[in-house]
Design a protein around this nucleic acid. Sequence first.
DNA 1: ACAAAAGTGTTTTTAATACACCCATGA
DNA 2: TCATGGGTGTATTAAAAACACTTTTGT
Lengths: 247, 247
Amino acid sequence: MKSAIRSINPHISVDCVIFGFSTSQLKVLLIEREYLDEQGNMAKDFKLPGDFISTMEDLDHAACRTLEELTGLNDIFLKQYAVFGNPERISRPVDVNWLISTTGLPIKRVVTSAYFALINISDSKDEHAIKNNASWQDVQDFPKLAFDHGELIKRGLEHLRNALRNEPIGFELLPEKFTIRELQSLYEIILNRKLDNRNFRKKILKSKFLQQLEEKQVGVAHKPAFFYQFNKAVYEQHKKDHLGFNF
Amino acid sequence: MKSAIRSINPHISVDCVIFGFSTSQLKVLLIEREYLDEQGNMAKDFKLPGDFISTMEDLDHAACRTLEELTGLNDIFLKQYAVFGNPERISRPVDVNWLISTTGLPIKRVVTSAYFALINISDSKDEHAIKNNASWQDVQDFPKLAFDHGELIKRGLEHLRNALRNEPIGFELLPEKFTIRELQSLYEIILNRKLDNRNFRKKILKSKFLQQLEEKQVGVAHKPAFFYQFNKAVYEQHKKDHLGFNF
DNA sequence: ACAAAAGTGTTTTTAATACACCCATGA
DNA sequence: TCATGGGTGTATTAAAAACACTTTTGT
């Protein structure tokens, strides 16, 4: 937090719930926080990557900036999913004191705009080195969190599941080029169930949102898979034509 | 606005996009606003029902309160759908001056939490008398609006359509007891297309979310329709079991 | 030649669509 | 008795689900 050199708006913050998927598990990215407990001893817990916005900063910009500053991740597709404005959300003395000491301002109440994103953990290992105060934690069983960040994660996960079921957000959340198997794994991990690979390919390919590329996987010890990319224009057209309802 | 007698938080506001459906049209509820134009003349335009939150007030509470104060509507199911935090959203001199003169505070930047609701206009005629500075305007062709309220309506409508297609929000937005025809009309108006009544009933009733009541319409000049109510528990169970994806 | 994941087709089951008449009530 | 909207069934078409083997590559 660079509160000394930028003009912050201490009433509004952003928080980022970054989901990471590997081949077997869904994780969240958390930042380790040091704070003084009730006895004045140094203690540690975790928080989401987040910060106050700057006085003339757009919320989306603040979310991206914060994520980069705290974790080193950049160029991530972040989506705002809710605002948390309960006046009691910052009320525990340790949280209030931590905010006052890190900002130097008399913080009373903060409304936060929550963002989520989903990234491939194995990619992030090489491409985006994650700063060492940030770490991946199990999304089902995360450690004690600051503020109402447990609630933000829970709601973010619901939002992610819903989004995945109702629109092709999976494509947005994968790298530009991906294999169909990667997309299927993403669905399986987030929806938490196995899908039939033949039926999945049929359904996905019938929709024409995916374009097959020339390029194949290289160096894999099995038949190499073709890469695909998402064709957004075709999806938008489809959405216009298809006005049904599903629930 | 009772800014004189309550302690307001001038950084955060709520705005309500209230959709009203009659048998033929979708409308939005707008409040007439008087302001001083560039030449210092009194002029009029429209705004959404909205206000700054109070210092220790929950956002949902602020939205309900505001709606009641400005329109007389109460007990409406309001759903938060987005935050609008562009630093330029309040930049036109007429808007800035209007805020300063109505609050008496040096407003610079306001982040607003947007809510939407949908109500039956014919119901509201008798049950909820709408205050006379509020009026229903065509959702496709609304008058000139204050701030970025045109954008809030556009995004609210997208949200409403999406919500209706992907979850049984229709039930939430109708009175406790309603006929299947009312539900169908709601779908037709919002999705802007005709639906086959036999197929609609089949699909809706197959889902078991609806419970038929003993009660029928009275005083209608045709075969009276049964009233139904939404069974939320059955829906929640269904959502757990059905983890497919649709897009 | 073996292991590992990619890729492919058919049958069965379920859901969506298209379509037209009789029913109960108030005027 | 007429006008109005409520309520129903069937046949066709389209989509989802279930299911097992062959292909290509690296080791």
